[in-house]
Write a protein that binds this DNA or RNA. Structure first.
Length: 304
DNA sequence: AGTACGCCCTGGCCGC
DNA sequence: TGCGGCCAGGGCGTAC
């Protein structure tokens, strides 16, 4: 049963998913884990992984392990280390260890973290690329169909430099003034919001939602935004991200949290993937265009 | 330096 | 029904 669920793309809507520990799967409908989804996963992992000690790391696909000369280095640095905390930075999940190291995971577009225990086991399939064996009981599976995810170990003190991310949009450091600084570029506002070095954690869904709420056209040069518009966008970004977290992320197909509960943020999207349907604000038909190779949804009437 | 674009990878979907 | 070709996209490398 578990195998079928993990590999099927569209589970029946009424299927009971309570035995899922952490499940992220969206092959049919493309969706990337953005800040709210990663935060939801992180909160689940926090409860399950803290205090666990790595006994063995089984790397089945070397290419998902990045930034290391050998996979043995990763194994060695994790060996017998205990997880002291789980954090999130942008779209990265960070496992703090009882050493100077941090285990870093990025889910890419289709990455999953599955907590397998004898009571609630998961089957290993061809997409299970890394298995973290714990000393006491259970394993953590890193599973990723499209292999855009990544796993690596970093020195705690060098992590920020290594990740090279912009400010956390929900942190106190992210002020309106910081926002105006970020906007000081000639590039189009949509790709700028997706640029992780400018602001960390925003992806295609939440950038479109934020721009719609702020009534800003995705093709506008970032530097053309007025002070008022910058404030609107600043507020909109925080609103959509907070709402995303509150509703436990966007579930497409079978994304669930650590208790098998689905997120409901997809029901609150106003613009994302709603092309051809009327805008909730003005009734105009929502359009879809490609910007820098990515789909962008916007209302041609509201967003100027 | 800043910006643009192609590539990685897979399953799903569309058209023939 | 079967199969080839195209699509989705986060982040990185390369080109301009």
């Amino acid at each position: 049963m578990a195998v079928r669920l993990l590999t099927m793309t569209r589970p029946p809507k009424d299927m009971h998913l309570a035995f899922f520990i952490l499940h992220f799967s969206f092959p049919a409908e493309v969706l990337m884990p953005e800040l709210p989804e990663v935060e939801t996963i992180k909160r689940g992992l926090e409860k399950q992984a803290v205090g666990k000690t790595f006994a063995k790391v089984d790397i089945r696909l070397a290419r998902v392990v990045r930034q290391h000369k050998s996979i043995h280095e990763v194994k060695e640095r994790l060996q017998a280390r205990t997880i002291t905390g789980v954090k999130r930075r942008g779209k990265f999940i960070l496992f703090c260890l009882d050493s100077s190291d941090v285990l870093v995971l990025h889910l890419g577009m289709t990455g999953q973290l599955l907590f397998s225990t004898p009571k609630r086991p998961f089957d290993i399939d061809k997409y299970t690329h890394v298995i973290f064996h714990f000393a006491d009981v259970g394993n953590l599976f890193f599973r990723d169909v499209r292999q855009f995810g990544q796993v690596f170990v970093a020195d705690r003190d060098k992590l920020e430099t290594e990740l090279g991310l912009g400010p956390e949009p929900l942190s106190p450091e992210f002020t309106e003034e910081v926002m105006r600084c970020v906007l000081n570029h000639t590039t189009k506002i949509k790709p700028l919001l997706l640029d992780q070095t400018k602001i960390a954690g925003i992806g295609n869904i939440y950038s479109d939602e934020a721009l719609h709420r702020a009534r800003i056209h995705p093709l506008r040069p970032a530097s053309s935004l007025t002070k008022k518009e910058a404030t609107q966008l600043y507020t909109a970004i925080q609103e959509v991200l907070n709402e995303g977290i509150r509703f436990r992320g966007t579930s497409v197909d079978s994304f669930t949290d650590s208790l098998g509960r689905k997120g409901t943020m997809q029901h609150r999207h106003r613009i994302y993937r709603k092309d051809g349907t009327p805008c909730c604000k003005c009734g105009a038909t929502i359009q879809r265009i490609k910007i820098a190779g990515r789909s962008s949804y916007f209302c041609p009437k509201c967003q100027k």
